[in-house]
C-alpha cells in the first residue's frame, strides 16, 4: 500500500520525461521546515523567521539546482565491444554537460526502475562535469535476449545538492544493438568431430596450406599472414591466401525454429558456441546454414566470427502474433 502511494506521488510529480521524488531525508527536512515555520509564526521570533527563510530557500534552491543538473546533462551509452546475451558486456557511458559556462555536479545514469525487464546496465556516477565537457565512464550492460535490442531505458538522475530530492530525466533509447547469442561451454562431440579435428598444431598447418593468391589485408586477418615483400612493393598491406581445404571446413546447420522458443534458443546458443570455438582455431573455415539455406558462406578469421554471430543473433522466425519488423 505504501509502495502504491509512493508511486502515485511520483506519478503526480512526473511530467515531460522528468520526475521528482522526495527521499526520507527530504521528508524529514520538510517536516523540520514546517515545524520551524510554525514556531516562527507562532512566537514571532525574528531569528526563527530567518532560519525558516533559509530552509525554504534551501528547498527551492535544491529543486532548481537539481533540475538544472539533469537538464544540462545528456548521456548516451555506447557499447564498447561485442555483446553476448546474458553476459555482462562493456559499455561506455558518455556524459556531456551542455552548458558552456557552468559545471554539473553529481549526476548518475541509471536504469529506469519503472521498466520491468531483465536487461540491466550498471549505474554510473559523475561527481563533476566541467562546463561544456564530456566525461566517459566505463560500465557494464547485461542484455538477456539475443537479437536487436536497444539499451535498457535509462534516466539521468541527481540527488544534488543534498540528497533531499531525486530528480530524474528519461533518456532517449538510442540505436538498437546487435546482441549475440549466449555462449555456452562447447559440447564435447562437436569439438571432437573427426572432420574438424586438426591435431595438436593447427596453426602451423593452417599456414602450410596450398598457396592461392595475394589479396588486400582485411580487418581481422592474422598478422602473420602478411606478405611483407609484397607490402613493400605495393605500398599497401597484403596477405597470402591459401586454398581452402575441404576437409577443414565446418558447416553449421541450424534447423528452422521460432525466436524465443527455449529449445531453439538453446540450439542457437550451442551453434554460436561451437562457431566461436572453431573459429578460435585459425585454420577452420566455418559457415552457417539455416533451414537448409546458406546464411553465411564459409570463411575464417575474426570478421567471419562476427558475421556468423551476427547472423545467429537475428536468426529464427518471429513468434506468432508478433507484428512485422518494420512498419
Amino acid at each position: 500500500m505504501a509502495r502504491r502511494k509512493r508511486s502515485l506521488l511520483r506519478r503526480a510529480l512526473t511530467a515531460r520525461g522528468r520526475s521528482l521524488e522526495i527521499t526520507r531525508a527530504g521528508w524529514l527536512f520538510i517536516l523540520l521546515t514546517l515545524a520551524v515555520g510554525f514556531a516562527a509564526i507562532n512566537s514571532g521570533a525574528n531569528l526563527l523567521h530567518a532560519i525558516f527563510g533559509a530552509q525554504m530557500a534551501l528547498i527551492v534552491g535544491s529543486g532548481i539546482l537539481s533540475e538544472s543538473m539533469v537538464r544540462r546533462t545528456v548521456a548516451r551509452r555506447v557499447a564498447a565491444g561485442e555483446i553476448y546475451a546474458g553476459q555482462a558486456a562493456a559499455v561506455r557511458v558518455e556524459l556531456t554537460n551542455l552548458d558552456p559556462r557552468v559545471d554539473v555536479f553529481s549526476v548518475s545514469v541509471e536504469d529506469d526502475d519503472r521498466s520491468a525487464t531483465d536487461d540491466a546496465c550498471a549505474p554510473v556516477f559523475a561527481v563533476r562535469i566541467g562546463a561544456g565537457r564530456t566525461v566517459e565512464i566505463p560500465a557494464t550492460v547485461t542484455l538477456s535476449q539475443r537479437g536487436r535490442h536497444a539499451m535498457p531505458a535509462a534516466v539521468v538522475a541527481t540527488r544534488f545538492p543534498f540528497g533531499l530530492f531525486v530528480k530524474r530525466r528519461e533518456l532517449p533509447r538510442g540505436a538498437p544493438l546487435l546482441v549475440y547469442p549466449r555462449l555456452v561451454p562447447a559440447p564435447a562431440p562437436m569439438a571432437d568431430d573427426p572432420r574438424t579435428d586438426l591435431g595438436d598444431a593447427p596453426r602451423r598447418r593452417a599456414r602450410a596450406g596450398e598457396f592461392f593468391a595475394l589479396r588486400e589485408y582485411r580487418d581481422g586477418d592474422d598478422l602473420r599472414r602478411i606478405h611483407w615483400p609484397a607490402v613493400a612493393r605495393l605500398g599497401r598491406p597484403v596477405v597470402r591466401e591459401y586454398e581452402a581445404d575441404g576437409d577443414r571446413q565446418m558447416m553449421l546447420e541450424l534447423r528452422r525454429g521460432t525466436t524465443g522458443d527455449p529449445s531453439f534458443e538453446a540450439e542457437v546458443e550451442q551453434c554460436a558456441s561451437v562457431a566461436v570455438a572453431a573459429l578460435g582455431r585459425d585454420a577452420l573455415a566455418v559457415g552457417l546454414r539455416y533451414a537448409g539455406e546458406l546464411l553465411v558462406t564459409p570463411g575464417s578469421g575474426d570478421e567471419q566470427r562476427r558475421r556468423v554471430l551476427a547472423a545467429l543473433a537475428v536468426v529464427g522466425d518471429p513468434p506468432k502474433g508478433a507484428t512485422a519488423v518494420d512498419a
Binding site: V74, L171, P172
Partner: peptide, 8 residues
C-alpha cells in the same frame, strides 16, 4: 548520435 541527441 549527436544529431539524435540534439533532436532529443
Amino acid at each position: 548520435e549527436r544529431v539524435r541527441e540534439i533532436v532529443a
